[in-house]
Design a protein around this nucleic acid. Structure first.
Lengths: 150, 150
DNA sequence: TGCATATAGTTTAATATCAAACTATATAGT
DNA sequence: ACTATATAGTTTGATATTAAACTATATGCA
């Protein structure tokens, strides 16, 4: 493969990623109840999967967004009482994020409303292919993450 | 694979896609000269690859953004004289987008400044894997595109 | 021809996001 | 202990994006 082809391929890859992300996000957002956004759902999902009690900084690292964005997102979740922010027990600068009962309830109902989208993928795409791609995508992500300063 | 695993896998896939997109976009944006954004570069790139003379609607379809977003993006490109909007010869409602010389020049220099990022991918990832993933990603994109109303 | 409906592009209001400046607390080196 | 530097979170100003309302032109049908 010559340099030009490599570059074209890489561009094409990122282009495809970008469009998939856009279509998926739009579909997700449209499906989520109550004006909630994927970014909100993702936080709840993360806290449920991996346990709550995280700091805002841990979350902004996990989702690769700035601290300011996380402040904004957590503010929206707090306003709806889906999470509660407590002071950090051992670091006066920090906070800890806890899920509330209504946060958990909302998460469950959001999962429900996303079901039709999940079905579309499951019925139209061989999920084994998805499973095969996943480690490679994680590798790409790791490379980008490692070279974030470039 | 049971339903729960399928759902988890699909979520994970979209999550990975989302983070790659975010990291790549951030890196691209940081590299682009003169406060330009990936969205601007992409339009120029599209017009150079596939030829100019497209309508704004064709572009918003190609990039899966709303017409309003395209108005905004084309406005930014016009203001910098990278494109020129002409009236459509046969449809009074429409317009046609042409590249200017400085648009072409800018595109070339943008490609240059993206080179370091391209190198990182090329040196750290087997591009054959990328090539293998591409058709599958295109398939995913097509599925999402086809079911955009769900 | 003339009216009803569809389509291309713009505008508006709201939200998400980022980078950078800022505040408050921690930590490290002297 | 004191001061300098680092870190957690917030705020600010700018831009991208969306959905929905709006304007202007086209098209189709009576």
């Amino acid at each position: 493969m010559d340099t030009k082809d490599k570059r074209k391929l890489t561009f094409q890859f990122f282009n495809e990623i970008g469009i998939i992300q856009q279509l998926a996000t739009t579909a997700f957002n449209r499906r989520l109840p109550d004006g909630l956004h994927v970014s909100h759902f993702s936080i709840l999902n993360h806290l449920i999967r991996l346990g709550d009690g995280k700091t805002p900084l841990e979350l902004s690292d996990a989702f690769q967004v700035t601290k300011g964005t996380m402040t904004h997102t957590l503010g929206a979740l707090s306003k709806r009482d889906f999470i509660k922010l407590s002071p950090h027990p051992s670091d006066g600068r920090s906070k800890i994020v806890f899920l509330t009962d209504s946060g958990r309830t909302f998460h469950a109902s959001a999962i429900e409303s996303l079901a039709p989208l999940m079905h579309i993928m499951e019925h139209n795409f061989d999920l084994n292919e998805l499973a095969n791609m996943l480690p490679k995508l994680q590798e790409v992500r790791a490379i980008l993450d490692k070279h974030r300063d470039v």
